[in-house]
Every structure is written in structure tokens, then in C-alpha cells.
Amino acid sequence: MIIPLQELITSAEIGLIFGSVAIGIYLTFRAINFADLTCDGSFVLGAAVAAVLARNGFDPYLALFCSALLGSFAGLITGVLNVKFGISDLLSGIIVAFVLYSVNLRIMGSAPNVTFEEYRNTLFVVAPLALGLAFLLASGFGLKLRAVGYSQQFAITFGTNVGLMTIVGLMLSNAMISLGGGLFSQYQGFCDVSQGVGTLVAGLASVIIGEKVLPFKKAPYLIISCVIGSILYRIFISIALHSSLLGIKTQDLNLITGLIIVLVMLTRRKARYA
């Protein structure tokens, strides 16, 4: 089993892009304890926005900013449905992801996919954003945000507007996921309306691998471990797909992903405090 170096580099690059998605998943599933399923839609939203803007000659960084902005708007809608209208977290996310399918098709001009010239220099924006979010989680705001995830009653007792914090958490999360979508479409020079399927699983796998492999306990460092987990996850997938001994083929990707998640979860459980 020999993996070409170029393929490892490609896996690491895609891992870095999906690190942005993993951070988004961490912010909802871990930090504010909100099972948000908007991600499958907001990932494609970011990809579609970046693709259409790139095709119309816009600056790639501006395109990414617009992706993140619209992603945060998707998070805002999910948050409002949950906080203001009392719709459960799962259902409000499902509704928004469902609606986003039509919105994404509209953005893409009713075409199921869009091709454009690839642009790969933007993927490194993940690193400063991850560091910025790590600092944010270590701040007073971050403490209050995480307190909402641990105990809403505690957070209210100490003067936190839990509804507002939940909405802000969802906006941050979906901005990161949408940004990941934008980066991925720029990296490939391609966007497909169904490419969001499995975003949640890939993001969760990265978060879990990061938590298990790295000995970090504090939330700011866990943001960094999400990115490293995502890179490791992509490398694991690459290694698995190159193991000729097992006869694994590309169509076995979901099977491999599931097995990797289960294997990592069965490894020695470390204390995980955020």
C-alpha cells in the first residue's frame, strides 16, 4: 500500500477545507449543544454562492465572504424558528436545509451543477479563522456561549440571554460551514446541488477524531483539534481507499467513513471537557 505524496497533500488540503465545516459542527453540537441539521443545506449554499460569483468574475475572497454571510443568514433562520417559534432543534434545521435545496437551485440558475475555473489559494483562510474562533471561545463571550451548551438554566441564572446566544452560535456555525462549501467549490472548480449530503457525518467524524487523537481539554484548543481531526480523517480515507489488500473501491467511501467513526469512538475514551 503506497499512497502518492501528491494524494496525501490533496487529502490534507481537503481536510483543511473541511476543518471549517468541523469547526461549524463543533460550535453547534458541542459548544451550544444544538443538533443542527442545517449544515447539509448551508454547505451547498456557500458552494453555490462562491461558484456563481466566480463565474461572474468576482474576487474569490469576496465570494467567500458572501458565502459565509449567507450561511450565517441560514443559521439565523434556524435559530429564529427554534428560539422564537419553539420548533425543535432537529426540525428547524431540517426545514431550513430542505428549503435551501430550492434556494441553492435558484442561485445556480436552475442548473443542478456549475463549473468554473478552480482557485486553490483561498483554502488557507481556514487557519486564521480557526485561530480567531479559538480566541473568541476563550473570551467572556465564549465562556457564556459554552455555558449555554452545558446548562441553559445555569446560563440564565447568570444573566445570559440563552435565545440570543443560541442564534449567534448557529450563525457562527453555519457561516463556517458555508465558508467550507465555498472553499470546496473553489478548490474543485465545480459545484453540485447535492454535494452537501454527508456534510454532517464528515464534520462529526472530524470533531470526534480530533477529540480522541489530541489530548486537548479546553475549548479554544478543541477548535484547532477540529481542523487537525479533519485533516487526519481525509488522510485515513485516502489510506483506506488505497488498501488494495481489502479490495476497497471508491463506492465504499460511506462504509469506510462509518467504520472509521466507529473505530475511533471505540478507542480509549479520554476525558473531554470543553
Binding site: 467572556g140 465562556l143 459554552r146 455555558a147 452545558y150 438554566q153 445555569f154 447568570f158 470543553a274
Partner: peptide, 18 residues
């Protein structure tokens, strides 16, 4: 319910202080 077990004593105190 008055403290968060998964945060440090300092972090709990900071939340109360803010």
C-alpha cells in the same frame, strides 16, 4: 445546577463575575 462541572473553578467564577 449552580456550577458547571465541565468548566474550571476559574471559568465558573468568571461567568458569575460577568
Amino acid at each position: 445546577s449552580g456550577t458547571i462541572g465541565r468548566m474550571t473553578i476559574l471559568e465558573n467564577m468568571c461567568i458569575a463575575y460577568m
